[in-house]
Design a protein around this nucleic acid. Structure first.
Lengths: 351, 351
DNA sequence: GTTAGCACTCTTTTTAGTTGAGTGCTAACA
DNA sequence: TGTTAGCACTCAACTAAAAAGAGTGCTAAC
């Protein structure tokens, strides 16, 4: 199986795929005979198609139907037959700028714009920070028995924790705790905060050791970024545009999965785990990290806003998706996101 | 139209509605004849049904079909024919407790649990604060040219704003600004922060008046709570369980709307606007505040966690939804939410 | 190696016929 | 006067059969 294809077979297979991407209908020999510039009769095409079927690139849904591409054919197409598409997607960029300087809004927008533009469903994950350190920590009294802990982690991830205390803390105590925590914790990563240190901190805090516990938990969560990976989705109803996904059972499953952000997080983590990967990844059918998407193709891109702050963008559609367009759109978005960030960081420091 | 119904007509109408709620199929005279304890023949029922049709309570989808209730009938049913259902929904409560002390997680859970329990779609809006005041404001230096503004509004809504500054602020300056802002702004509502005060503040801040602007904007947004109303949804795929909503066109529209949190926010604002309303609201068909839900019924409840902190829970399903159960579930959830809050506030101050 | 032609297959569409649920109306009955 | 049995009628839903259409595989000729 999967032997090398000669030039003509390649051309024919490509034509079959292209045509099927457009129409979603099985494509017959006569169509190809006209579609390509090979000037071959349908009979010849039939012979070739017969070969392609034997090689596992196309199948017939039933005896007297045309052929449709197999996952193997899509794989070949994506890997080596796809042409770089012009990225004319100027409007994508414009729509991004609206959202000014709020990362979460920009990402929400990315999801929406991509979904509108491609007619597929999109999943965008907020940048996740790994192996980073505590940058800033402060306890403040908000009222008599409420203390606000503000935690900032490298990458400017901010976390707030409101802590109730039975007995009001004096100003001195608060100051003391602040100094204590900062001198011991600032600049440390999660691995460097060990049990011995925690015990020491608690001892020094005396009757307020509970407070320390709560703060430390919050610090740990903030550093790990475990809280919950923010996921933005858009275009779930685009599934309905493709009959092969739109029947009740499949649509229901897809929509259900799409609602379950936790399941979608897999898409992000899958890609982000591979720190090298900064490119585009294509999952066809069963290759998908999410079972519910076995009838779909999933294309993901990884973006990097800053050292270590990486997130992912995914587009989910039918297997017969317009891979060229999707890949081009993803590249545009990825570049644009990274550009926006760089612009802000390098040229526009007072954002 | 809508004249008073005599007892028998009422009973028959109720039977028609009940039966239709269960089956979703038009119900015929013979069914009713057996369903009720009126001991009437189908012929008699037919006469009565004919009357009910003339009065606008039921219609025939086509000549030789049974009758289905109209919106008017549902209205009557919900207003006066519905029975209080026992609230046996103990598991709802248990599932809530998992989520400990994070309001957002609790609310996410509410949405999920309700959706699972009722088999309808749910929308939960986070509590919105109105007319509240600035409680706490603090600027801190995070690194040389980044200032973190932490803003706490009554009701413990916390907002962070990272502000870049060209020239590093000295410690004195920072202290001065903090005092300046706190003395002027703490305890004020949005209406009380007027232009004169802003100008005065900026003057006193000197070269850092830009900083003041940014902080004030953030304060204003925090107080208004305008940012974006958090909306949690669940059970979108439940729509597929009801054939009358599951055809591609309708499902697509519903799912699309369901994804558009902004549209859903209407549900919340609609109810919260009426400050008196702390009960259950039922929208049938066209009555719904959201056009896309014209074929659905929407039942909403308003919960109040604390003085002025009110949010809403909505359940969306087919018009033939199990109103008794939905109302009971909503009541349980509302009570439980309010109870959890009270427990925390009154009995467990260091939770 | 390529192509025209034809028989064959199998889905899709069309048509016609049948069934069944349910109604409205009439006439009889209590 | 209200109730009921009976019957003709309607119309969606189902079934079966027929026709159409798209496409193939194979063979024979070029």
């Amino acid at each position: 199986m999967a032997a090398e294809l000669d030039g003509r077979k390649k051309k024919i297979l490509q034509a079959v795929i292209r045509n099927y991407l457009e129409t979603g209908e099985p494509v017959g020999s006569r169509t190809i005979s006209k579609y390509t510039d090979l000037n071959l009769s349908s009979a010849t095409i039939r012979n070739e198609m017969s070969d392609l079927e034997e090689l596992g690139y196309i199948i017939q849904p039933h005896t007297s139907a045309g052929r449709i591409p197999t996952d193997q054919a899509y794989r070949l197409y994506v890997d080596s037959m796809m042409e770089e598409k012009d990225r004319e997607i100027g409007e994508l960029k414009e729509m991004l700028l609206e959202a000014e300087n709020k990362v979460d809004k920009v990402l929400k927008n990315v999801a929406k714009v991509l979904a509108n533009n491609t007619n597929y469903a999109t999943v965008v994950s907020a940048p996740q920070i790994r192996g980073n350190k505590l940058k800033f920590l402060q306890l403040s009294r908000v009222d008599e028995n409420q203390i606000l802990a503000v935690i900032v982690v490298e990458g400017n991830v901010i976390r707030n924790e409101m802590i109730s205390v039975d007995e009001p803390l004096t100003d001195e105590m608060l100051l003391k705790l602040n100094i204590l925590l900062n001198t011991h914790l600032t600049g440390l990563s999660i691995d460097e905060i060990n049990l011995g240190m925690i015990t020491a901190l608690k001892e020094q805090a005396g009757i307020h050791s509970d407070l320390i516990s709560t703060v430390l938990d919050a610090v740990a969560e903030a550093i790990r970024g475990e809280e919950d990976l923010e996921i933005y989705t858009s275009g779930a109803n685009n599934f309905f545009k493709y009959p092969e996904l739109a029947d009740n059972e499949k649509a229901s499953e897809l929509i259900g999965t799409f609602e379950e952000k936790k399941a979608l997080a897999k898409l992000a983590t899958e890609n982000l785990a591979d720190e090298q990967n900064t490119g585009i990844q294509v999952y066809i059918g069963e290759e998908s990290p999410i079972k519910a998407m076995k009838d779909c193709s999933v294309v993901t891109a990884t973006y990097e806003l800053e050292e270590g702050m990486r997130g992912s963008i995914a587009i989910i559609g039918p297997k017969r998706m317009d891979y060229e367009k999707v890949v081009a759109s993803l590249k545009t978005m990825k570049d644009e996101l990274e550009r926006i960030y760089n612009r802000r960081k390098e040229a526009d420091p007072d954002g």
